[in-house]
Design a protein around this nucleic acid. Structure first.
Lengths: 110, 110
DNA sequence: TTAATACATTGCAATATTACGATTAATATT
DNA sequence: AATATTAATCGTAATATTGCAATGTATTAA
């Protein structure tokens, strides 16, 4: 198989897992952290910054863009990337709801 | 390839991606949400609850346990699972730091 | 002891992911 | 126009993930 049976889960569960999946590779984490650190648009130097080959970085950027977490603007021959702030906030709220579920003391055995 | 080049990333980046990866499947999200909802140990009914075959659930539980996010206690013929609260809090702090990076207004082009 | 129950493990098929060389597409420069 | 630059896309190899049938293991019940 290798494919998740998404139809048996809620939209919320599928959405959480899609966001999580995109953070499930250190290169994409590194790209996002760099975009936050620079806090402006990064044109081109992500390949040097991260250290993977250009097609690989391009593929990771595509996934981040597809989920709406970054924006890309063509600027001459290069492309400028930055965090999509509104979508990042939306994602953050969804993930935070999941992570911040109540840990009330009431356990029986563990 | 199919394997991440973890050696070129920081420990923090690799840790974030490992936690995210385990949330990158809706079945594991559903299992965790169920454990939170019950808010005590769940003995046995996870297979009925989630709807995947027993070996599949067992495999997902193994991954969650391996990362330390759940605990499993043998209770007779069944095994009781619950959230590992301390580890969950640690994970939550790591993920929150990543998700809550500052979104200061200063963008050039995007 | 035997049978039943609950869960783990093994083995395998189908699909997904990661990485990159080669190529293509688009714009800039000369 | 010809060339250079930058990034996307294609194609492919290596590896990982998902799912489950079959089987194994441990505990309980009869």
């Amino acid at each position: 198989m290798g494919l998740a049976k998404t139809e048996m889960f809620t939209d919320q569960q599928n959405e959480i897992s899609l966001f999580a999946k995109v953070f499930g590779h250190p290169a994409r984490v590194a790209i996002l952290q760099h975009l936050f650190k620079i806090n402006s648009c990064v044109c081109g130097d992500l390949v040097n910054e991260i250290g993977l080959a250009q097609p690989t970085i391009s593929q990771h950027l595509k996934e981040l863009k597809h989920l709406g977490l970054i924006k890309g603007n063509v600027e001459g021959t290069s492309v400028c990337y930055c965090i999509h702030k509104e979508n990042w906030t939306t994602m953050k709220n969804i993930m935070s709801d999941f992570l911040n579920q109540d840990l009330i003391e009431k356990q029986n055995c563990c």
